[in-house]
């Protein structure tokens, strides 16, 4: 491996680990559940994405074969992370967890037509 490649790999690995760390830091540092949700879904996804790109590069360069199967994990995480975030937000709204931002009005009413604030404005 040449020096440039090694520097690039190091940068990718460090950026990936850094983003993963910041995502978990958000989990501890922020105040309510809804803001905490942002850290792990975003920062962590990009963090693992960076690490997987680094892994793909590393194995493509050190062995003879091109290694692309890391793309699969990245793709899978990019598809699933928003779904789990969406479900978690929905569950939190369902339980009316306390929030820094004002909660929408009929947040707990699952399956009711019209969500929250807009509906009230329509009725007026």
């Amino acid at each position: 491996m040449s020096g440039t490649v090694e520097i690039l790999l190091s940068l990718l690995v460090l950026a990936g680990a850094g983003f993963t760390f910041i995502g978990s830091l958000g989990l501890v540092r922020l105040r309510d559940f809804y803001t905490r949700l942002h850290g792990p879904t975003k920062a962590t996804t990009l963090g693992v994405g960076c690490l997987l790109i680094a892994s793909s590069l590393f194995f493509s360069l050190t062995t003879e074969n091109i290694s692309l199967h890391e793309i699969l994990v990245t793709l899978f995480l990019f598809i699933t992370a928003p779904i789990s975030a969406h479900l978690l937000a929905k569950a939190a709204l369902h339980r009316r967890l306390p929030s820094v931002a004002p909660l929408p009005v009929d947040a707990a009413a699952d399956g009711e037509p019209g969500a929250g604030i807009d509906r009230l404005q329509d009725l007026r």
Binding site: Y34, A81, A85, H86, A89, K90, P113, G114
Partner: peptide, 19 residues
């Protein structure tokens, strides 16, 4: 759209209204 919103500009899509 909901997935894109979750991954992009500092937002998480929380619920789709029943209609």
């Amino acid at each position: 759209l909901a997935n894109t919103i979750c991954l992009t500009p500092g937002t998480v899509s929380a619920r789709l209204s029943a209609d």
